[in-house]
Design a protein around this nucleic acid. Structure first.
Lengths: 335, 335
DNA sequence: CTCGTTTAGTCAAACGTTTGACCTTCCACC
DNA sequence: GGTGGAAGGTCAAACGTTTGACTAAACGAG
């Protein structure tokens, strides 16, 4: 049971076979022909010495790091937490380690430089920020990469969620409650997810025979949502309900509504995209649309594992999207 | 500018020097004697070919992975997000990559197995969960490790925050507002942070000449806080203020108080340990004690970078601890 | 008994760096 | 003119695995 720097050579000496045999036994090489008793001897020696293959040597020889990268804008955002969890689980299932980095440091370019050559076998990119020279930065990494929930005109490697459908679900819920004037706190201008959610909003309104209500862009942050909600409430004909593109914005927006003296949901209903545990504990508990974020991470990793370099992927994930009705939505108050 | 599998040998061929020279130039080896023009030639070749050292080969030769590990219970908890950020920044400053793993998979043991031999040069452990066989699991990794904000009787390698002082700050704030009967939602039974915060609570009460109020243990989750708060409010002589050991518990506790028909802060004041952006957007905005969590991550990484195996570390971090007064605390309501 | 085949392994090169030891060439000094 | 030393590199081993090529022994068929 002694541990430490145990190499194949040590195990080979104990088991009285060549290093090659140990390697093949450890890796379950199907081409290996071996007597059961020899295999036993090898496994016993491996266990007795506590042998664990050296990752660096293996990587050097096989040119595979058995590690995937995941790059996110910010660890503090719980939306990414769920993606990370899914990706981590899928990676572990492939015996891969997931290394998650955030933009906190020197951005994507800095992260790629830090990783160096050969540390990861594939990279997942989550988050919507537009970085200048993104493609050049990615070229620098000699690694297959996939974008998560973001399309880009010049990029043909992505997995996205059906944000449009999520938006429709939310808006249909509001319309079903009787709301006729429904506003929209959209995401950041130009963000791909924002465009898709806004498209879903407009489509659902059109299908209901209603005109779009007031629309204001908002960052995916509480502060952004608060500011945007204040702007939206300044509309001469304020809506009775609001579809918010992101739960973080919604948290700020709720605060703004309260500050404006509006009672939720009696005077204004709110529903947001992305569910959080926390949503149940807000005042009032927030109605949300739950997206399969963990599945997004899982699928991304699975694709990295089976992707040829330069192969393109354009996939809309069809995981479950469900409306979670809590107390922030109700029929409009009839004055 | 071509990229791909460029090795020292390629660069050496172009620059017409030995591979050793390239290596020494790239690594700024001070023992190297070289003519300026040769150095120029080398650097030009490196740039022209886009050479980046292979991480696996370097790790194999030097027996250092230039990577640190950080193990946390859950990515969804924003408290850990701040630790991660600090650790990531400190690691980047040392040209190290930080690989963060969570307990979501097979726990610490599974994570260590997944990492394999030689992938990381040091491991940071955050979070308070008691895992059986923890020390054995750590022995399996042939790697220096440090616990973050958790002591354990058998372990002499940790960095902790001054949780006792944080608790005192919170309680002194409540007492200063005029509260005499102050309850306490403590952390999980046996958790080290819970013990230290509870000690601070009792000490501050004693210093104020007051008896301890009702104390109930609560998980560091909204659900745990909600349940505990309900129990605490069942006290025949309920407190006018509560010190909550963790902000996540406090979010649930606020909900319970509301459900019980209590208005915060008019009928009951609440203050919790750990600040979040989100705290400003709760209803009402929550008074908290901000702890230097990012600094905790930073310090942990810095210590890993400069630690000898088997050296012990017992450090109380003296970063800034500050009370952030929002609207959840007020003088007691005089009936 | 000989030949071919299977069984059960062995052998050694290769992956790309790093680094201590070594080797020229040139110059200064006596 | 010989010697010592510095300047400017070169050489080659080693890190620990993986894997295609090879081989010795045993066996069955003819």
């Amino acid at each position: 049971m002694k541990s430490g720097r145990v190499t194949l050579a040590h195990v080979a000496a104990v088991a009285k076979v060549d290093r090659a045999v140990i390697s093949r036994v450890v890796n379950n090489d199907p081409t290996l022909n071996i007597r059961p008793e020899t295999r036993e001897r090898v496994l016993a020696a491996v266990a007795a010495l506590g042998y664990r293959p050296n990752v660096a040597a293996r990587s050097l020889r096989t040119a595979r790091a058995h590690m995937f990268g995941l790059f996110i804008p910010d660890f503090a955002n719980p939306v990414y937490a769920e993606i990370i969890k899914g990706a981590e689980a899928a990676a572990a299932a492939l015996s891969y380690v997931l290394v998650t980095g955030s933009a906190a440091g020197a951005g994507l370019g800095g992260y790629i430089d830090l990783l160096g050559q050969g540390r990861i076998d594939g990279l997942l990119l989550a988050g919507a920020e537009e970085e200048a020279g993104l493609l050049e930065q990615l070229d620098r990494a000699t690694v297959p990469w996939i974008m998560l929930n973001r399309r880009s005109p010049s990029v043909k490697r992505y997995v996205i969620l059906d944000d449009e459908r999520a938006a429709r679900l939310a808006v249909e819920h509001l319309v079903g409650l009787g709301h006729r004037r429904v506003g929209h706190l959209a995401g950041p201008v130009g963000a791909d997810t924002a465009l898709r959610r806004s498209a879903g909003y407009s489509a659902a309104m059109r299908d209901a025979g209603l005109p779009d209500g007031p629309v204001v862009a908002a960052d995916y942050t509480p502060a952004g949502g608060a500011a945007a909600m204040t702007a939206l409430l300044a509309d001469p004909d304020p809506p009775t309900a609001v579809f918010v593109a992101n739960v973080a914005s919604a948290i700020g927006a709720m605060e703004s509504a309260r500050a404006a003296g509006l009672e939720i949901p009696r005077q204004i209903s709110m529903v947001a995209v992305h569910d959080l545990d926390l949503a149940s504990y807000l005042a009032p508990p927030l109605t949300t649309v739950r997206m399969p974020l963990a599945e997004l991470g899982r699928r991304g990793v699975a694709l990295l594992g089976s992707l040829k370099l330069d192969e393109s992927v354009e996939e809309v994930l069809d995981g479950p999207i469900e409306l979670i009705v809590r107390l922030s939505t109700a029929p409009p108050y009839m004055a």
